[in-house]
């Protein structure tokens, strides 16, 4: 299967900062997440992939076309949804998307037809005739997505599409992104600074930080390492014999064969939160039973969403893996 995006030692330097540093990735068709904290180089990469900014060195190909020479051909086949607001408030979604479809080269009649279809697919119905200024953030994001899809591209680049959405809106948007690939047959590159939300949506994740590639692998291999359960317990008056309930729980869980470590990234509060690696469905039961046996209160038990900086704060994958292993070993030895 041919690659959708390939980059080879792609570097982009600005006078004072290196936005991309010898980035080499190979993205296959599907939904691919590009994860990085703010300023990691995600938007710069998208600009280069659209052929809008020249790379300082290295090469990149999108849909088999060279970004340096085939910019217009690439932009004809690719859709782009920017991170920032980009909608004029005084026109309706229909008028706006029709205009953008024509800017992509669609004849007037086809532009109207595709606009009606696309707005329906992203979930905008009657409101599409009203001025965009009155839309909610979720509806605006859908219009932005629609203008990226209206010309039926082979690939869409979505820059932080869940930004500013509430949890429900976020889930809707992620579901929509999934459907762009499964139902529409369009490959997706979606960026986010939240690893957790992309885990559920993407087939493949690419993590960059400071313009360098930290990791590129299938979501399955990613989630193996990152499925964690945050547990917080509280002693109550009935259990005076437990001077240190956290240690007691930790020992018990370790004895039950689970890997436990303190949540180092959460700061002050972190002392009270334990991260338990989820081995299988039974992990939840073990945690529950352990806490109940000790007569403690279970304050928190939640699947943890990682922020990239949390996992990769050293910016080095090998080091990270070592650290995680070491961390586990330490806890196991206690």
């Amino acid at each position: 299967m041919s690659s959708v995006i390939t980059t080879d030692s792609l570097t982009k330097s600005f006078p004072r900062v290196t936005a991309l540093d010898r980035l080499t990735v190979d993205v296959q068709p599907g939904v691919v997440g590009l994860v990085g904290s703010n300023g990691a180089g995600k938007s710069t990469l998208i600009k280069i992939l659209l052929g809008l900014a020249p790379a300082t060195s290295g090469t990149a190909r999108v849909l088999g076309l060279d970004v340096a020479t085939d910019g217009p051909a690439i932009r004809e086949r690719v859709g782009y949804m920017p991170e920032h607001d980009c909608l004029p408030p005084d026109v309706s979604a229909t008028e706006f998307v029709v205009h953008m479809a024509r800017m992509s080269g669609l004849p007037a009649a086809a532009a109207r037809e595709r606009t009606a279809d696309t707005l329906r697919h992203v979930g905008l119905y009657e409101e599409r005739y009203r001025p965009i200024g009155g839309y909610s953030t979720g509806m605006k994001q859908r219009v932005k997505l629609a203008q990226a899809l209206v010309h039926d591209p082979q690939l869409v680049l979505l820059d932080e599409p869940t930004n500013g959405l509430d949890p429900v809106g976020r889930d809707d948007m992620l579901g929509l992104i999934r459907r762009i690939h499964t139902d529409f047959g369009i490959s997706v590159l979606v960026t986010s600074h939240l690893l957790g939300e992309l885990e559920r949506t993407c087939d493949h994740l690419v993590v960059i930080d400071g313009g360098r590639l930290l990791r590129s692998s299938s979501t399955a291999s990613f989630t193996e390492a990152t499925q964690l359960l945050a547990v917080e317990v509280a002693a109550d008056d009935d259990t005076p014999h437990l001077t240190d309930p956290d240690t007691a729980v930790r020992d018990r869980l370790a004895a039950a064969g689970l890997t436990v470590r303190p949540d180092t990234a959460a700061g002050e509060l972190g002392g009270r939160i334990m991260l338990v690696e989820i081995a299988d469905e039974g992990t939840y039961d073990i945690v529950r039973d352990t806490v109940a046996d000790l007569g403690l209160g279970l304050v928190r038990m939640e699947q943890r969403r990682h922020r990239v900086v949390e996992i990769f704060h050293d910016g080095d994958t090998d080091h990270l893996v070592d650290q995680q292993k070491k961390g586990s070993a330490d806890v196991g030895a206690v």
């Binding site: 659209l50 809008l52 217009p72 051909a73 932009r75 004809e76 690719v78 859709g79 782009y80 920017p82 920032h84 607001d85 980009c86 909608l87 004029p88 408030p89 953008m100 800017m103 992509s104 080269g105 203008q147």
Partner: peptide, 11 residues
């Protein structure tokens, strides 16, 4: 309204 990048992301 920062619509300009939408034009330039097209041919």
């Amino acid at each position: 309204f920062m619509t300009v990048p939408l034009y330039f992301s097209r041919p």
